[in-house]
C-alpha cells in the first residue's frame, strides 16, 4: 500500500517542485496562510486523484496484485501524507519569511478543512468523476453567491466564526472537532471502498 503512495509521488515528481515554488511566491504576497495552505493541499491531493481516474490507470492498478480496498485506502492515507507535505514547507516558509511560528490551532484548522473537503470529494469522485467535482463546486459557488445577495456580510461573518473558533480555548471543543473530522474521514473512507468495489472497468 505504501507502494501506491510512492507511485503517486513518482507521478507528481514533476509538478511538486513547481507547486512548492508557487507556494513560496504566495507566501511572500500577503495572502492568508491558511487559505493558501488549504488550496494547495486540495490541488495536490486532487491532482494525484485525477491521474488514477482514467480507465487505463484503473485497469493497470486493478490488474496488479492490489485489492480495491488497498487502492482506495492508499488515496486516503496518501492525502494525509500530502497535507503534511504541504504544511511542512508552509510552516518553515512562514517562519523564515515572516518570522512567525504558526499556531497549532491554525494547522489543525487547515487540516480539518482539507480532510472535510476530501471526505466529500473522494466518494463523489469515485461515484461520478472528479471532473464533475468542478461542476459540483460550481453549483456550490452559485449557491454561495446567491446567499451572498441575501446576506451581504456573509464573508465577514464566516471570518468572525473562524476567529471565534480559533480563539476558543476549550480543549474539549478541539477534541470534539478532531474527533468529528476523523470520524467523517473514516466514514468517507469506508463509503469510497464500497463504491469502488462495485466499479466496472
Amino acid at each position: 500500500m505504501l507502494d501506491l503512495i510512492r507511485k503517486d509521488m513518482i507521478l507528481q515528481k514533476k509538478t511538486l517542485p513547481f507547486m512548492l515554488l508557487f507556494l513560496f511566491i504566495y507566501l511572500f504576497v500577503n495572502v492568508s496562510t491558511s487559505w493558501v495552505a488549504i488550496v494547495f493541499c486540495i490541488v495536490i491531493i486532487m491532482n494525484a486523484f485525477e491521474t488514477d481516474e482514467t480507465s487505463s490507470a484503473n485497469l493497470l492498478l486493478n490488474s496488479l496484485p492490489y485489492t480495491r480496498k488497498e487502492i482506495v485506502s492508499s488515496k486516503y492515507i496518501g492525502a494525509l501524507f500530502f497535507i503534511f507535505l504541504t504544511l511542512l514547507p508552509i510552516f518553515i516558509g512562514n517562519w523564515m519569511i515572516h518570522g512567525e511560528i504558526m499556531h497549532w490551532k491554525v494547522l489543525l484548522f487547515i487540516t480539518s478543512i482539507v480532510m472535510g473537503f476530501i471526505s466529500f470529494a473522494f466518494p463523489f469522485s469515485y461515484l461520478f468523476k472528479s471532473k464533475y467535482l468542478l461542476i459540483g463546486s460550481g453549483a456550490v459557488f452559485v449557491i454561495y453567491m446567491v446567499t451572498l445577495r441575501f446576506i451581504p456580510d456573509l464573508n465577514d461573518r464566516v471570518r468572525e466564526v473562524v476567529q471565534t473558533v480559533l480563539s476558543l480555548d476549550n480543549s474539549l471543543f478541539y477534541f470534539t472537532i478532531i474527533l468529528s473530522v476523523a470520524l467523517l474521514y473514516v466514514l468517507s473512507w469506508i463509503l469510497s471502498i464500497r463504491i469502488y468495489s462495485r466499479k466496472v472497468f
Binding site: R6, K7, I10, L11, T51, S56, L59, L64
Partner: peptide, 27 residues
C-alpha cells in the same frame, strides 16, 4: 499473473524506468 492489454495502460507522462519503479514493488 503477467498481463498485457490491447490498449496502453501505462501512465503517459513518465519514462519506462519510472514506470518500472511504480510496478516493481508490487511483485
Amino acid at each position: 499473473i503477467g498481463f498485457v492489454f490491447d490498449s496502453n495502460i501505462f501512465y503517459e507522462n513518465i519514462t519506462l524506468t519510472e514506470m518500472k519503479e511504480i510496478i516493481k514493488p508490487a511483485y
